[in-house]
Amino acid sequence: MKDILLAVWRYRHFVTSSVVNEMRARFARSKLGATWVILQPLTQAVIYAVVFSQVLGARMPGVSDRYAYGVYLLAGILGWSLFSEILSRSINVFVDNAQLLRKIVFPRMCLPVIVAGTALVNAGLLFIAIFAVLLVLGHLPGPQVLWLPFLAILVVALGLGLGIFLGVLNVFVRDVAQTMVVVLQIWFWMTPVVYFSAVLPAGFRKVLEFNPMFPVIVGFQNVVVFNKPPPFADLAWVAALAVALLGVSLFVFRRASNQMVDVL
């Protein structure tokens, strides 16, 4: 596994240039450019905010500010969009780049790393947009927002750990990608992005806390909305899980790497 990581490091300039080229290609003929990256999650957040705040009367517990729920929602969307992009794209990355894998010799692990790099750039652009919205709403994040890079690294590790494993499996069983589309939809509603974790019944909350994205999204909401540190005690097992998943994924990738190109 060490040789895989060293190979990716030796090709770090290839990874960086690929991320830059992908972003350029995405916006080359687009008049709105990077706006499209942030438009979809922001639109989703606005829709949820209107439906839940105005139609369903959702309010932040103990907070009377009418914009509080919108801020809470934006924080959750920021964390979830990074995770879902890495996971969904990693699952298809080897299949989508089959021609490249057949024709060019390079470390195949670079592909999911490029996916993660592009997702981080998108998340950075989204954060800038969200920060601008928060300024307009008069909600300037406090110093605890400096924990966001730590949370982003944890999301990347978790997304790649699961995504690489499922990406290898998807090469041999193509139903994996289709199944995960449905799983991600269910997973989203099992994560406190659009609802408040504090108002969940104790028993139901205990069940949902087995979801590794539960404390991660709570962490995003803590630092952006409440100016509180992330729940480090709850995040410890998520970090351990992410490291374990990365280890298993690299092991499976190494064992299946030679057969992958033949199947593709």
Rank of each mutant, 00 (worst) to 15 (best):
P230S: 00
E85R: 10
H139N: 13
R205Q: 07
P61H: 12
S90P: 10
V182G: 06
S257M: 10
A240K: 01
V176W: 12
T179C: 11
R24K: 15
E85V: 06
L137A: 15
T35Y: 14
V216Y: 01
G247P: 05
N21D: 12
F27D: 03
D65G: 10
L120Q: 03
F94W: 13
S64M: 13
L125C: 05
W80H: 07
I164P: 05
F204M: 13
F232I: 00
R24A: 11
L241G: 04
Q99L: 13
I128F: 12
W9H: 14
Q221P: 07
Q144G: 01
M213D: 07
D3T: 05
A233F: 06
G57Q: 07
S84I: 09
P141D: 08
L73F: 04
N211G: 05
M60V: 15
V156A: 05
N97I: 00
F83K: 03
L101N: 09
G138Y: 00
Q44A: 15
I164S: 08
N97H: 12
L158H: 03
Y11D: 11
V121S: 07
V155P: 08
I153R: 10
V248W: 01
L140H: 14
S249D: 00
I4V: 13
L42P: 06
S64A: 15
R66S: 13
F150R: 00
L100D: 05
Q259I: 05
T118M: 11
M109F: 14
T118P: 03
V182F: 15
G219W: 08
L32D: 02
A202H: 12
I91F: 14
L151E: 00
L42I: 12
L125F: 12
G219R: 10
V243M: 05
A242H: 01
L184F: 07
N97G: 09
D262S: 12
Y72F: 10
I38A: 15
D3S: 12
G142N: 11
G117R: 04
L166G: 02
P201C: 07
A34Q: 03
